[in-house]
Nucleic acid binder design. Structure first.
Lengths: 184, 184, 184, 184
DNA sequence: AATGAATGAGCATTCATTCAT
DNA sequence: TATGAATGAATGCTCATTCAT
């Protein structure tokens, strides 16, 4: 088994962890499953990451398949348009149409953070990234609400197997973004 | 050991499961932990619920501490008012201010449902209950969006330890409920 | 592997634990070593004894090779004689000359109890048994001191590889038993 | 990480080992725990002390918080008095009243020495130091018995959580020191 | 109908030690 | 000389599930 001196070993473990989490969910992530996926001795995973949380955090933090990334890839769509809601609805559609594993992983992270405070900073990073991406187009409070609404819409899609309805998303995002209705 | 012929046994197991899930999270729920909490022999839990999923579903379905219940308790608040957003924001505040375990448990259900399709019907029941409660006050599509937004707002509160901001919730719910802004 | 339904399984595990502790010391006692010695699956040891301490306590409590047992076997030696010190010195010699494993195990118990409070009751039982055996022959306070002195003498023998000196033991035990010297 | 060429490194590792052993017991002593306590890389501990026993011996030999040290500190108490028993009982009280960690560590050494012959010389050093301190005040054989009795008394205190009874100790030490009772 | 016993798989983690650099 | 990386073995323990009674 002469595989001593394997530079990049640490990175390969992280990559394997991401694959495992994507395939089996965060619950399926264990030192053993990751070691097997990375083709690395068990002790190696505990050497580089003393606890599972440590590994999980490293993996999630690197996992750049989140919505924020998709958003960045389509920045042009937002920048050029005056209709922010339409742009967001489109990007959301792209994201949800892509690899479901990435989408599910993102929400697994959110919700796993519910019980594991150690994960909250990572979850916060993800939402912050989206909020920041919206900053140039609207005020911060509205941006926060937009993120909240998008999260809620995605959860509904994921949990009810209802197909994503871009028109619906655009309409509702539009309402939030447009600001308060005129006084009656 | 003469506890044979215990008619409420099955129910007591369910109750214990809810307590366990509330206290330790769904991940902490096992035949053993539930048996201990219910003060019942281990075999009894597997007898009444062949698999863990079966027990989990029974427990969650009964768990009536969800937002829908709080909403029902404050129905008057919604019925009498013309300001639905304000009423919802208030009820949301009541729910989030109460036992956090109930809130966390509800969102943990979402997490579990992501990877365990067997739980999705239960998750759907919960959101449907809220949507239906809103039915008399707005159209179905808006109701769905309101639920989505409330979910997103709650997640932000739970995941970032930010205190719940009722004014913010009222404002944003108001925007969604008010309907599309006038064309410009 | 059809070894289901093995009555006496629990007892066999205890017996195996005693053999392991005698052979390798308390430090060598693990679920695995005991399971192997008892020719029983690993899970069986954890089923019958949820924690190692539980198994250790059960084993030590049953282990009747302690000094108290040897003392009981030679009760006649003490009862018939007016020279208690001589009797005790003789019994001590018999004990130390026997299987060293029993002697070492007894002191391992004493000293393991130093750091593991769970073991203290068992250690107390052992010393109490000796103290009670001495009760008919002397007052309780002297009995306690006799036990203390015997423990100290045994430790010296075990730790310095010095052979046991019965005359020395008899002399010193005699001084303690005789009571205070006349005032000068 | 520039902590190469650290002259006191070896000593700092020993000091850390003593702190670890005092705090968690000898069983809690490992290359890792010591390295962490000494704020030194893991490899450093294995470099300076090839095996754990080597480190343990070095640590114990230096550990000067034993009873012999306390005895030396109170030498005046013994020298000036004609009542050796009273003096010893007082010193014993001082030792047992101080940091329990030192007391427990000393007796843990006895435990370890039972099964690890490599430690016996160190254990012998400790008792010899006490015996020598008594040399000026009594004959060697009595001194040995005094040490034995003190060990037994201390064990009783440590194992039964009984408070130290100085009057009892003085009385019993007095009986041993006084020498044989007059023939009857 | 009910359950105590059983079990094999799995878990996170710790560890002493080796070794290439 | 010093050390970070590596690793295989072992640890206590939990678990879902099966099954004979």
């Amino acid at each position: 088994m002469a595989r001593r001196h394997d530079p990049g070993r640490r990175q390969r473990i992280i990559d394997a962890a991401i694959r495992v989490a994507a395939a089996q969910g965060i619950a399926g992530l264990s030192h053993r499953t990751v070691a097997a996926e990375a083709d690395v001795p068990l002790g190696s995973t505990t050497y580089h990451f003393a606890t599972l949380d440590e590994l999980l955090i490293a993996a999630l933090r690197q996992c750049n398949e989140g919505f924020a990334t998709v958003l960045a890839d389509h920045r042009a769509l937002l920048d050029g348009s005056t209709d922010l809601a339409a742009g967001l609805a489109t990007v959301l559609g792209v994201w949800l149409a892509g690899e479901r594993t990435g989408v599910e992983l993102e929400y697994e992270l959110y919700l796993a953070a519910l019980r594991r405070p150690a994960l909250r900073p990572v979850a916060a990073e993800w939402t912050d990234a989206v909020t920041e991406a919206l900053a140039p187009h609207t005020d911060p409070v509205t941006a926060r609400a937009v993120v909240a609404l998008m999260d809620g819409i995605c959860l509904q899609v994921l949990l009810t197997d209802t197909p994503y309805d871009e028109g619906y998303a655009r309409e509702m995002l539009g309402r939030v973004i447009a600001g308060p209705p005129p006084a009656r």
